[in-house]
Computed example of a mutant assay.
Amino acid sequence: MTKHTVELGTIQETLLIPLYGRAVENLKAEAVLRDPRAEEIVAAIEYDFSRFDGLPSLAGTVLRTALFDRWVADFLADHPSGTVVELGAGLNTRHERVDSTQARWFDLDLPDVIALRRKFFTDTAQRTTISASVTDTSWPATVEEDTDGPYIFCAEAVLPFLEGTEVHHVLGMIAERFPGSLLALDTAGPEIVATQATHDALSKVEARMQWSCGDPAELATWLPGTTVRASHTLSSLPGRMYEQLPAAYQDMIDRLAEQRLPQVEEYRLSLVRLP
């Protein structure tokens, strides 16, 4: 089988970590989520994924994705015809995992990522790919063209790699153009950013996080009126989600909760309502 070569920028290469995490998870007898498309894509890409084998962060990426999936599913349960915007979509397959038959969906990422993504995904009347930086001021117009909202934006493993001023710009732009929208995001605290060179997965690539955020509530100091709807660490996931996890994951989370490691407690997954 001819495989697709990967020509991605430094930051963009990190998208391969959660992709591989989902593919590995799909092979398990008891899995947090099922993603056969991720397994197919990994098999079709020319890349040394073995560098990520056995890394604890793979499980973390799967849990993060599963929580974001839940937030999007809950949003669509309330708003079946709502709009989902993936900021830094990478090779995510949330559209395939979540019941989104009526939703309007946008997958946004940088041109090199979109070039790779187009080898595996095709636009439809309901699903549109946007080739642009999340900081670009032009992409909101594409989303606005034929949608009325409500909106949920997903920034999974994206914003920490931007400068703080860029994050401020992106959130301000979304709040201005799509007031009252939901935003699912992850944040890394100062100690995580300071020690990321020894991180099990990031140490395997050249990308480095730039923006640190100790508390998602800080976003309200940038955008007054922003409210945190939910915020979790990997050791304090929602009770309903924890109860449905395979036993091995529950055991891992229990150990993490006891250890209270800074690299776990400073990494937060949050759902916020923008003003």
Rank of each mutant, 00 (worst) to 15 (best):
L33R: 09
R22C: 08
A31Y: 04
V32D: 02
F52L: 07
Y47I: 03
L55H: 04
L27D: 07
A29W: 01
P18E: 11
P56H: 04
D53Y: 08
Y47Q: 07
E39F: 07
I45Y: 03
F49Q: 04
P36N: 05
A43P: 00
A23G: 10
K28H: 09
R51T: 03
A43N: 06
K28R: 08
E39T: 11
I17G: 01
P18G: 03
L33E: 14
F52K: 00
D53P: 12
G54W: 08
V32Q: 08
I17Y: 01
L15W: 02
P56C: 03
R34L: 13
Y20I: 15
D48V: 05
E40T: 15
D53Q: 06
S57K: 14
S57Q: 14
A31H: 07
I45S: 11
E13L: 12
D53F: 13
R34I: 10
L19C: 09
T14N: 12
G21K: 09
K28W: 06
N26F: 07
K28S: 13
Y20G: 02
I17C: 04
G21E: 02
K28N: 13
N26S: 14
E40W: 02
L33K: 12
N26H: 09
S50A: 08
A44G: 14
G21F: 01
I41E: 00
E25A: 13
R37G: 07
D48L: 10
I45P: 09
V32W: 06
L55V: 06
K28T: 12
I41T: 01
F52C: 01
R22S: 12
F52H: 00
E40R: 12
F49H: 05
D48W: 09
G54M: 09
A38K: 02
V42Q: 06
E39S: 15
I41M: 04
R34K: 13
A29P: 09
L15Q: 13
P36F: 06
E39G: 14
A44Y: 00
L55P: 00
S57F: 06
E13P: 11
G54C: 12
E39Q: 08
E46G: 15
V42L: 11
V42Y: 04
R22G: 07
S50E: 15
L15G: 05
N26A: 12
A38Y: 01
I41G: 00
P36R: 05
V42R: 05
A23V: 15
A31L: 08
A43V: 08
D48H: 10
A38Q: 05
P56S: 05
V24G: 02
R51Y: 06
L16W: 11
I45D: 07
E39P: 00
Y47T: 12
S50D: 14
R37P: 00
N26L: 15
L15V: 11
L27E: 10
E30H: 06
A43H: 05
G21W: 01
E46W: 00
Y47E: 08
E39M: 14
V42P: 03
R22Y: 09
A23E: 07
L16I: 13
S50G: 05
R22T: 10
P18T: 10
I45N: 10
D53G: 06
L16H: 12
F52R: 00
T14W: 00
A31F: 09
V24S: 04
E46F: 01
L55A: 06
G54H: 06
D53T: 11
N26C: 13
E46I: 04
L27F: 13
